[in-house]
Design a binder for these strands. Structure first.
Lengths: 231, 231
DNA sequence: CCATTTTGAATGAATGTTCAGCAAACACGG
DNA sequence: CCGTGTTTGCTGAACATTCATTCAAAATGG
């Protein structure tokens, strides 16, 4: 009779041994509602993707990770494929909700909004090792799977469009000699590239360093809106 | 009696139907040397990775793609794992040789060298769909496999270091208010991110557009060294 | 008790690996 | 130029393993 380890140590980018206490807000064991169990399995899937990669993520591993029996996944999800799609969907929704939330809190000033968007990308909640690894695992398969490809545009048209608009506003306000679309593309690519590097080589690149590099880039692009920091 | 289709139409980013004539420099059929056959299988592996993704790349598919029999891979490579490592190694070496060659041709001027480095990244020979897809397939697995991780740093320390040095030279020469290391990191991430996007959404983003965005970024970072183009 | 959830063994398909044998190239003596 | 033996490259069926899926039965909660 094994016990599910539920709380994710959504890592501090340094596998911290944070022994958080079980979340009492949600009921465990048999009483877990359908949706809760689905979440639990999705989290276990992310764990497995991060630990073993896409190609070695098995149903058994997911079930074990959740502390449940083998057949469980096919009960809550119909198949492995659907579990993975649900997992990607979950991450995409979480990501979108996160940057939209950050934007909402940022106020109306374009520069503040853009800074918030960048900061959101390097937030602990989003930019943890295990989640980056999971994203990357899906990216690797996205080329050959239309479903993934669509969802992997999580940093999607809406995000991209938002960045374009913010760049447009800044270019106009500051009279910068930049093409908003091109600038937004470059910015976006840089953020994604920083994620990739963050995931690959974890030692010599920290979340803070990556965030700093991105912020400095904003300063260089829009010097009149992002004052140079002392760093 | 099937015939191996050897020449890759290293694609023009739009699956061109370039029916190149068989390379006469290398002997085919039974007489193919060991090394040639290995290359052939590696190319077939890249094809399979691009077409089906890492997790669905099978030995049978590689063998079929090369027009050879099932057991062939285990004869020339020892195992699937070793085939994949050899493939990644091949791509890494090709990539390194390519940018080093471009650098050699660029002359001594730092700005020209940096521009050459960027241009090399978007060269047809390197930046074809199938190769980007293959890279991305490996990236997805790199997290959980030390061997891949090491090789995936193909855009490796040496590349990164070169970019840092070029940035340093430019910063000094032009008195730009930039930190070379941070700038190099951002540039590098942007290039990798552009690759990723180039692979994901092939329609609304072409190699030329990506290259243009990268070049514009150079202009913005080092305006006195990269004159603004009319584009 | 009934409905819902969970279990875990059985099943079958997919696939990496092995290997005995075949056939082309080659070496060499006639 | 032939014949013969040997090496080397290659084949494809057989094998073993891994893994997703199924399902009948058990456990749990209401």
């Amino acid at each position: 009779m094994r016990l599910a380890i539920l709380e994710r140590d959504d890592d501090i980018m340094k596998n911290g041994a944070a022994a958080t206490h079980p979340p009492e807000t949600e009921k465990r064991g048999r009483k877990a509602s359908k949706e809760t169990r689905r979440l639990q399995l999705i989290e276990a899937t992310i764990d497995s993707l991060a630990k073993r990669g896409y190609s070695e993520t098995t149903m058994a591993d997911v079930a074990d990770g959740a502390g449940l029996s083998r057949g469980i996944v096919n009960f809550h999800f119909e198949s492995k494929e659907k579990l993975l799609v649900a997992t990607l969907q979950h991450m995409a929704e979480e990501y979108a909700a996160h940057w939209k939330g950050a934007l909402a809190k940022a106020g109306p000033e374009p520069s503040a909004r853009l800074a918030a968007l960048v900061a959101a990308d390097f937030d602990r909640a989003i930019c943890s090792r295990r989640k980056l690894a999971a994203w990357c695992a899906f990216w690797g398969e996205a080329r050959s799977r239309p479903t993934y490809q669509a969802l992997c545009g999580s940093r999607d048209e809406m995000y991209q469009e938002t960045v374009v608009e913010l760049c447009s506003a800044l270019v106009e306000a500051g009279d910068y000699p930049l093409d908003p679309r091109q600038t937004a593309l470059a910015l976006d690519a840089m953020l994604e590239g920083l994620w990739l590097r963050l995931m690959m080589r974890g030692d010599d690149l920290t979340r803070d360093k990556a965030h700093a590099a991105a912020s400095t880039m904003l300063t260089t692009l829009f010097p009149r809106h992002f004052p140079r920091t002392s760093s």
